[in-house]
Design a protein around this nucleic acid. Sequence first.
DNA 1: GTGACGGTGTGACTTTTATCACACCATTAT
DNA 2: ATAATGGTGTGATAAAAGTCACACCGTCAC
Lengths: 235, 235
Amino acid sequence: MVKQLSKHSISEELKELLSSVDHVQKIEKNRFLFQEGEDADQMYIIQSGRIQISKISPDGRELSLRICQKGDIIGELTLFTDDATYLLNAKVLEDAEVAVIKKDYLERELLTNTELAFEYMKWMSEHFRKTQTKFRDLVLHGKKGALYSTLIRLTNSYGIKRPDDILIDIALTNQELANFCGTSRESVNRMLSDLKRKEVLELDKNKNKIIIKDLQYLKDEINCENCPIVLCSID
Amino acid sequence: MVKQLSKHSISEELKELLSSVDHVQKIEKNRFLFQEGEDADQMYIIQSGRIQISKISPDGRELSLRICQKGDIIGELTLFTDDATYLLNAKVLEDAEVAVIKKDYLERELLTNTELAFEYMKWMSEHFRKTQTKFRDLVLHGKKGALYSTLIRLTNSYGIKRPDDILIDIALTNQELANFCGTSRESVNRMLSDLKRKEVLELDKNKNKIIIKDLQYLKDEINCENCPIVLCSID
DNA sequence: GTGACGGTGTGACTTTTATCACACCATTAT
DNA sequence: ATAATGGTGTGATAAAAGTCACACCGTCAC
């Protein structure tokens, strides 16, 4: 049987503790859980489905930051800030259920529940390291590096190991990939064609999914230092 | 009298609480407080001087992330991780004194002292938002955007308001600026010449410092949304 | 079926950015 | 005083990336 690579690092305890949720909300594909500028008074934990976090710049360009699934926390940036509006957009990629946690409730909880606070700090810390290494790749190795890094992260988060290759089990258009890299659709398309030619990957045509055949090639190209896999994911 | 723009957001309480320091360490210019890969078991709060945080990639290129001064916390990434080595380098730009806080001591403290934990979470949260907006600028508007964003942040952190302009009171070479932008020395040099020609800034020749004459121009070019100044700094 | 739609793939061209090379200061060391 | 050093400024050229244009291909609605 196939096995998903991704290791979700949010601890059982944290999930447990956070489970004092206000309620659970269902939301369907292509809708927004929240959008930039909206009043922000809650945080979410995904129960099912997939949600993409992105920033849209005034000139219309979109920068995608994460794709999140079961167990991931989103809306976390609203915590501990007085300027309580969302800074990012959360678009639902696949019908989702999210557990809603009220911001002020959680803040109060964190003030009294030491263990929760500790677990939360731990999560935040890891989340920070993850974000920073991600951006580092984006800046340091040009657009090619940005794409390769994104592919590696997608593999770690959504890869399904198969005998001879790894299927990235999430359908993304070239444009969506480009948004992760801060580049253009055409550039991504050309780079993917290139990688196909080099037999680094294949495209599962009718399903819009990518199959990685030579992960090491991608890693070598961006001087991947084989950081802990938990730091090298897309969520 | 001139006035420094920078608002350091680390709360008095946090400084107070963190002040249960192990000891204070002096370290002089051009030395490293810590380097990538070294064992990490302490965190620092800068008392005086300036320290630059950067990542050096295996191929020798350097990406600068922050320049920190009095009141700033560094080495914070080592907290809550088992892989206890530093991920970044901390180079002393100007002779410094740092308060040393032992990692395991602080972790234990955070587990018992709720108020400290709360303040620390607050700081971390803001630090995270700051880092994210910084990288966003770097990725979204090309190298020019990266430089402009860096200049704006330097202005916010190290700018001294004067009658007709703002002096960025820190000496940086073109190469050092380039390291913040993930670009080349020559590119930075050309872009600066350009800005000089457009009368957006001036170079204080003999002191290697930059004088901003038209901050708004820089902001307009990168679609600055005038986020809270505390988020838009270089530290 | 067929037409609209959203996505891919690619050529041609432009703009941006990097790289190489070298002249030209200041400053510092000898 | 002179040489070495480290930084700046700039031209020439090459490489990377973006933009525009358009053909092509499935899928879906009607």
